[in-house]
Amino acid sequence: MVKDDPYDRPAPGPDADGARRDPPRLLVVGEDVYADWDAIYLDNVTRIYRLMYSKVGNRPDAEDLTAEVFVAALGPLRVSASRGEVRGYLVATARTVLAGYWRRRLGVEVTTIDPDAELRSPDEPERPSQAPERARRVLGSLPERYRQILELRFLRAMSLKEAASEMDVTVGNAKVLQHRALRFAAQAPGDKS
């Protein structure tokens, strides 16, 4: 019987788990491992940064938290760990780093990272974020005035004054409207549809 040479096997996709379960034949092929820490950094930094940004919503904090994740992982994490293990370890570290940030900053965990959900998501660091789509759904479910104030302020980046003038209300009214709209949005079933 002619055995397949694994070198001639069609290239598996980046995460073709099925391929990994093939019994080894002429060549023992392991899981992907990184060449060095620089490679770990380059392959993961965008993913970790985007994850943190989605949890804190601002650049300076997202940058600090991303740096904290890599610095915290540097000591214990071995370069020889497989690519999947590295990703898992970084996400787990991100989860504890984010929890620590909220504890120090506000005493309560406003957002959390679910490592299982993160690791189930496709291995594409540059994949477009799902956040705009989710936000559209949340905004779509709000009463008109609430939707309007949030769109003007959050998506079109208008100041309170500009938004108030656009909606033809006082700045004080716009502020109250925004507060109510956010509380309403917090209850909206944006993730369920």
Binding site: S54, K55, E63, T111, L150, L155, H179, A185, A186
Partner: peptide, 27 residues
């Protein structure tokens, strides 16, 4: 309300792309 605000803030297309200078510095 803050959680909702964070979600909306992160929803601007491209808002979550990291800054080149930050990436190089951290590297």
């Amino acid at each position: 309300a803050l959680r909702a605000a964070i979600e909306l803030r992160a929803a601007r297309p491209g808002a979550d792309l990291p800054d080149e200078e930050f990436m190089t510095g951290l590297r």
